[in-house]
């Protein structure tokens, strides 16, 4: 059981909440309270837009424990438009091929169940192709 470990990071997982350094203004994800750029204290919450692009990716056919039923699935390094690079699953690909530089957006999805079907459900960010938007 890893319930507290998941619960503690709900905001970053559900909403992509990271931090902004008050000194050098860079955006930080995941939140770590110390700026990786200038070394200053950085505790100001910052909600990322969720938009980014695929920096690199790979497809897993043999998933780690807890992800077996999801295979095959694609994991990408996503470069967020604010700067940080996050590792996440890609979803809703359908027949869309993945390419480096492909624009993606964050969605909140079911990541896995903690243990068997009796366990807590873990939700968090994944990214999908932006393709179908007409929103202004």
């Amino acid at each position: 059981m890893e319930i507290p470990r998941h619960w503690r990071i709900n905001p970053q997982r559900y909403e992509l909440i990271g931090e902004e350094c008050p000194h050098c203004k860079i955006k930080i994800f995941p939140p770590r309270d110390v700026c990786p750029n200038c070394g200053g204290e950085a505790k100001e919450e910052y909600t990322f837009s969720g938009r980014g692009e695929v920096y690199s990716f790979t497809t897993l056919y043999d998933g780690p424990a807890g992800f077996e039923e999801m295979t095959p699935y694609t994991v990408a390094l996503v470069k967020l438009e604010e700067g940080p690079v996050v590792t996440a699953q890609l979803t809703d690909l359908g027949s869309t091929g993945v390419e480096i530089g492909m624009p993606v957006e964050m969605v909140t999805r079911r990541i896995r169940s903690d243990g068997d079907e009796r366990g807590m459900l873990i939700y968090g960010y994944k990214f999908r192709p932006v393709g179908f938007t007409t929103a202004k």
Binding site: M70, T108, R109, R110, I111, L121
Partner: peptide, 9 residues
């Protein structure tokens, strides 16, 4: 719904 979707998502 896809494998990672449910009423919550």
């Amino acid at each position: 719904a896809g494998l990672d979707e449910d009423v919550i998502t």
